[in-house]
Amino acid sequence: MTFPSATLLAQSALSGLFIGSLYGLLGLGVGLSWGLLHIINLAHFGFAFLAAYVCYQLASVGGMDPLLTLAIIVPAFFLLGVAVQWLLARFSVSPLNSLLATFGLTAIIEAGIQAEWTADFRKLESVYAGQKFRIGELFVPVPELITLSFALALSSGLWAAMRYTDLGRPMRALAEDAPIAAAFGINRRAHGLMLAGACGALAGVAGVCLALSFTLTPSQIYAWVGVVFAAVMLGGLGSALGPLTAGVVIGVSEAVTMAFASPSWAPMVSFTLLIALLLLRPGRS
């Protein structure tokens, strides 16, 4: 093993920061749904990819700016999230069954994407794709910077909303003890639908970020599940800032491992880190 140059190390860490922010952005909706609604929503990944394809379609065929597609995607996916939550609540689906039900929904979304756009690769060629700027020896690509900005803004915005607003506090109360919260007049159903809608909208934003940086193919949906789940568990269920923090820790640790050693070691290092933190973190039960 040779010691990498400072530039290589810094560029790799930057790359890890960017990919970690996407882990965090994808994990934000999964973690909130899991922690506050007790729904382990695997379909979140399907929604994100569906949003990515919608963004691709609107931008490539419709000629829209990819970022402007958010004006359509965010409300549409909010409604999608609400609809799925309504269905799951209607049939009183348990957390474990929600995993199975939403896995099935993901398979349906994947089949739907394949039927509409085929299984072939789709690449969004946007004005942002080739843009980058330089800080000293380091290069900062604009699409990844957009993802980082969204992840930071949404995570901190949701953290503040959960902590300080009349919409967020009841949600935390419902997650803590739903019957007692209901006794205090909190409408569990309405708040659940609202939160699920927000998670759907978050999937929409993550999808646009995916379309900006990655070539799309339906089966890629599953490539993100493992590492994003790791970020969610490490960051804490229901936490708004946790998935982003954990995503960045995973992303940077993987990237730095790749800079020092063989890239094939990267998952081992990040998951060892996950296990160690889960075992050693304070307050574990």
């Binding site: 990498p4 140059s5 530039t7 290589l8 560029q11 790799s12 930057l14 790359s15 890890g16 960017f18 990919i19 490539a223 993100w224 590492v227 992303g251 993987e254 990237a255 730095v256 790749m258 800079a259 063989s262 890239p263 094939s264 990267a266 998952p267």
Partner: peptide, 20 residues
């Protein structure tokens, strides 16, 4: 000489090492 696992999501560090 570098190897990565199939399904790798971040090619940034690999590209940086090639450049180096």
């Amino acid at each position: 000489f570098l190897e990565w696992d199939f399904g790798n999501l971040d090619y940034g560090p690999i590209a940086a090492r090639i450049k180096d």
